[in-house]
Design a protein around this nucleic acid. Structure first.
Length: 581
RNA sequence: GCGCCCGUAGCUCAGCUGGAUAGAGCACCAGACUACGAAUCUGGGGGCCGGAGGUUCGAAUCCUUCCGGGCGCACCA
């Protein structure tokens, strides 16, 4: 776990040192906050290599003219040997131009860190629990689960790379009415396996034939014992068996996407352990749960609405629109009541919680946030908690929406998708849009091998690099850092882009947005392709120069490191970097 | 009616949590292959960042309000 001192981090430190010096001289008031000070590449490369807004941000608290302050800071920075020039621009930006050696050193840093290049200690080892997928264990994973699964998994990897410990968790809803329906459906298949003619699966039960093997297994295990027995004798048993079988299926489906959770938490076990009761008792003791009557729902005509007294959580105190029941009128826990206790349980094993939910659950975000906020007090510590909503994916086939009918059990499964287009395409494509925006997934487009398909574009850049290295290795040419000072402007442009990887990772981790890595990789691939193609116009710019082995080795070294950065980025996304297409 | 998300080039989308003249791809126009992999690259046109106010040195970004689209709004999970 090498922590690389990256170029951007190094300059942030240098700027900070200059500010400290100015503070010592009395130019800056002591204790002036430096939070807003940033170091970033300017949008326009003509402005230089790095820019800082330090003077703009600090001018006001220091009571100074921004440009005057900028001159003091720029003078301090210009003294650094790695800085070729420090110019003041616009309202008070300081633009730095760096010596080529500074960038070439970064290339060496990539080589030294290898797969750890870009890894950050920013997370400071704090534990983040990410709950994602958590699909009901009533059938195979289908398309609707896919995006959240990929986004959650990539976010987990991103946060790990960003210096957090991560718990990947799956909440198994094995306690409600739906899993009882599942058990009854399995019982039908069980009777069928025993030779009974069951005809059509009755409406309300799960018709999918994925339960056929479950029925067969039950028949093999129990024979005819429960065929005509009253439900009370087999319901729990069949539920347990069937849920276990469904979870096996789901684990297999997730594995196809390269997803492996650390923890599967059972709602039934949570309830059996009395966790919701404990939560309720604590909340009642703090006047956060009371017995009350909900208002009739608005917006829809409430035909069958009846006022009933229920135990209500005071979520309105935390910004929700309505207090929310934690138990149903039959005394059982509502989904929310159990989920509340579940979040308390998760908080005990982590410093921070993240839930990845489908957008169709947006309406319940406020209440669960309210619950975690309330329970923070009970845990004696604030529990940072974020719910990431993942919007719908519309499946298309060459522009035409794919019809899916859940009722008939005819839906596109994740296994179908992976089989048709491959894991890497599914994962990368799901990450080429910010999660909160709706998205189309067109089976025809995602397998297209062209530059408007980012997966292939990035893979192609990597494959080109690997292909070049294979070819030169066969000729006895090896990458070498010895002649790096001979690299020119075309090479440096790519290096400068690659050097931004660590800050992209940090920014993406901070924002919890893995899709940024996908976009960055696309841009990095573009920078490499541009560099490559310069060799088409001018043969002297090709990587392989038969008349100059030293320069070839230096360029190979560059290519090797660009490939490394692409691999590191793809690793975060869970996408394999291929050797050839 | 209420809540959440979205609205950026003709189309599909980025925009580094407030920075400089708003960027990519597709499409369109004009170019680059006797190949280190052209599945690529170079150049060009194309914008009231949905509208209107506000906050400040500075707004696509933050606040208010309207318009348009999506999702949700029960003791379902």
């Amino acid at each position: 776990m090498a922590e690389t001192q990256t170029l951007y981090a190094a300059f942030a430190g240098k700027i900070d040192a200059v500010l400290t010096a100015l503070s010592d001289e009395g130019v800056l008031p002591a204790g002036t906050a430096r939070d807003g000070v940033s170091v970033e590449p300017p949008r326009d490369p003509a402005h230089g290599d790095l820019a800082t807004n330090a003077a703009l941000v600090l001018a006001k608290p220091a009571g100074l003219n921004p440009r005057a302050l900028a001159e003091r800071i720029a003078a301090g920075l210009a003294a650094d040997p790695a800085v070729v020039s420090a110019e003041i621009a616009g309202p008070g930006f300081i633009n730095l131009r760096l010596a080529d050696s500074a960038w070439l050193n970064e290339l060496a840093a990539i080589a030294a860190a290898g797969p750890d290049y870009g890894r950050s200690a920013r997370g400071a080892g704090t534990t983040v629990n990410i709950e994602y997928v958590s699909a009901n264990p009533t059938g195979p994973m289908h398309m609707g689960h896919c995006r959240g699964a990929v986004v959650g998994d990539a976010l987990a990897a991103l946060l790990e790379f960003g210096g957090h410990k991560v718990i990947r968790e799956y909440y198994v809803n094995d306690a409600g009415a739906q899993v009882q329906t599942l058990a009854r459906s399995a019982h039908m298949r069980y009777r069928e396996a025993l030779g009974e003619d069951i005809g059509e699966i009755p409406p309300g039960l799960y018709p999918g034939d994925y339960l056929v093997p479950v029925g067969e297994a039950l028949a093999a295990e129990f024979g005819g014992r429960y065929a005509a027995a009253p439900e009370a004798e087999w319901l729990d048993l069949f539920r347990t068996r069937t849920v276990a079988a469904m979870l096996e299926t789901i684990r297999g489906d997730l594995a196809l996407l390269g997803i492996h959770h650390d923890l599967f938490s059972s709602e039934a076990e949570l309830q059996a352990a009395g966790k919701p009761e404990q939560a309720e008792a604590w909340l009642r003791a703090h006047d956060l749960v009371y017995d009350g009557v909900l208002e009739a729902p608005k917006g829809k005509p409430a035909e069958d609405w009846e006022p009933v007294e229920l135990p209500l959580f005071r979520s309105t105190r935390f910004g929700d629109d309505q207090d929310r029941p934690i138990r149903k009128s039959d005394g059982n826990w509502t989904y929310f009541g159990a989920d509340l206790a579940y979040h308390m349980q998760k908080a005990q094993g982590a410093d921070e919680l993240i839930d990845i939910w489908g957008a169709d659950h947006a309406g319940t975000v406020k209440r669960i946030k309210a619950a975690v906020a309330a329970l923070s007090a009970g845990e004696g510590k604030p529990i940072p908690f974020d719910v990431k909503l993942v919007q719908m994916v519309q499946l298309l086939r060459a522009g035409e929406p794919v019809k899916m009918s859940k009722r008939s059990g005819n839906f596109i499964t994740i296994a179908d998708m992976v089989e048709e287009v491959g894991k890497d395409v599914v994962r990368f494509t799901m990450l080429t849009r910010k999660p909160e925006a709706q998205m189309d997934f067109d089976f025809a487009k995602v397998v297209e091998a062209s530059k408007d398909n980012p997966v292939f574009y990035v893979q192609y850049a990597h494959a080109r690099i690997r292909s070049t290295l294979r070819k030169t290795a066969a000729d006895g040419l090896a990458p070498s850092a010895d002649g790096l000072d001979r690299l020119g402007a075309d090479e440096l442009a790519v290096v400068k882009f690659a050097a931004q990887f660590p800050r992209e990772v940090e920014a993406a981790a901070k924002a919890r947005e893995p899709h940024r890595i996908a976009f960055y990789l696309y841009d990095l691939a573009a920078a490499f392709h541009a560099f490559w193609n310069a060799g088409n116009d001018d043969p002297e710019k090709r990587i392989i120069l038969t008349h100059d082995r030293a320069l070839t080795s230096a360029r190979l070294f560059l290519a090797l490191q660009i490939g490394q950065v692409i691999r590191n980025g793809l690793a975060i996304l869970g996408v394999e970097a291929v050797e050839e297409l």
